[in-house]
């Protein structure tokens, strides 16, 4: 690397970019996601004129708060090199469980912990299968998917309305800042992102998550608590599923056992678009937040255009493809360098 720099007189802007991209290759996909988000927002504003209104942008967060919470949990799992397919059905299960408990008169301070615990329990099951029984994450979380979806229907076959004040408060309250507004659900989502980002970047646990994704064998030889961490990431993802169940219930005012079908794919797509490497070891919680905003913006643009909602998934699929090819190129390049 130094050989090429030797005869260069002074670092030009191009050189700086090159050095930056070589040293910080793992940030590049996230930067690309930010660029895409900005292009989408500017394009939408140019097309519709009223897209970048505070009201509309506030709604982006409001409508996708549950997705953001799921994406944070998924980021932990994917950075360890795993995957969690169960999140959508866990969200449906905890949502309908909470709704039915509220409908039968259980106080809300019991219901919310039970919802979170329900999600964490399924996460624990997956984590134990993955870590202690050497089951592939894909299959273990598939069992979690079936379990969550089936249990949701065991609780109730049809939707249950929620008329509980504190739950509806989460959604209906609008804290106004000028024309901008944020709901308690939005605050919860952002708090989860902040907590996730801090845990990933600054704690020993977070470092271990990255280490496992980089090389599980090395992490183990370094004496890191691999087993505990690998179970915990699935517990975290399950917990996020439970919380997302709460947010979605508040958002839609009802629990519904068919909620979140296919959401796991949206979440994985958001996380990948946000720059997390599916092979593990690289990724940022904040990147996943950007990924969710990209998804949310595409969704909103499509409803602005009045086009078929099925376009959302086609475009997300195309973006996903673009990002995995970009990631592939980046990994191939850093492999060559080492």
């Amino acid at each position: 690397m130094s050989a090429t720099v030797v005869d260069a007189p002074a670092p030009t802007a191009m050189d700086r970019v090159r050095t930056f991209s070589a040293r910080r290759a793992s940030v590049l996909p996230t930067l690309a996601a930010i660029v895409i988000l900005v292009i989408l927002l500017i394009g939408a504003q140019a097309e519709f004129g009223n897209f970048l209104s505070p009201r509309n942008l506030s709604a982006l967060l409001l409508d996708h708060a549950y997705l953001m919470v799921l994406a944070v949990g998924m980021t932990f799992v994917i950075v360890t090199g795993g995957i969690d397919l169960s999140v959508g059905s866990v969200m449906a299960f905890t949502g309908i469980l909470g709704s039915s408990m509220l409908a039968s008169g259980t106080p809300v301070w019991i219901v919310i912990p039970v919802m979170l615990a329900g999600g964490a329990a399924i996460g624990t099951l997956i984590g134990v299968l993955v870590q202690y029984f050497n089951v592939q994450p894909f299959i273990a979380s598939l069992a979690g998917l079936f379990l969550g979806r089936g249990l949701a229907y065991v609780v109730s076959l049809s939707s249950i309305r929620v008329e509980n004040e504190p739950i509806l408060w989460l959604q209906q309250t609008r804290f106004l800042i000028g024309d901008w507004y944020i709901t308690p659900t939005g605050i919860i989502a952002l708090a989860v992102v902040a907590a996730g980002a801090v845990i990933m970047a600054l704690t020993r646990f977070g470092r271990t998550v990255y280490a496992i994704g980089g090389s599980e064998q090395s992490a183990r030889l370094m004496g890191l608590s691999v087993a505990r961490t690998k179970v915990l990431v699935y517990v975290i993802s399950g917990l996020c599923g439970g919380l997302a169940g709460l947010l979605l219930t508040a958002y839609s005012g009802a629990g519904y056992p068919r909620n979140g079908i296919g959401t796991e794919l949206d979440v994985i797509a958001c996380v990948v678009i946000g720059g997390t490497l599916l092979t593990g070891g690289r990724g940022y919680v904040l990147g996943s937040m950007i990924g969710v905003f990209v998804f949310a913006t595409i969704n909103t643009i499509i409803s602005f255009m009045g086009a078929e909602q099925s376009w959302t998934h086609i475009i997300i699929g195309a973006l996903l493809l673009l990002f995995i090819v970009v990631q592939r190129a980046i990994v191939a390049r850093s492999d060559r360098r080492t």
């Binding site: 794919l265 797509a269 376009w311 998934h313 997300i316 699929g317 195309a318 996903l320």
Partner: peptide, 19 residues
């Protein structure tokens, strides 16, 4: 392209139903 199978087929899984 050498992309992981789970991810490579996920693209079509997402987009296929839309198509």
């Amino acid at each position: 392209l050498g992309i992981q199978p789970i991810i490579a087929t996920l693209v079509l899984m997402l987009a296929g139903r839309g198509v």
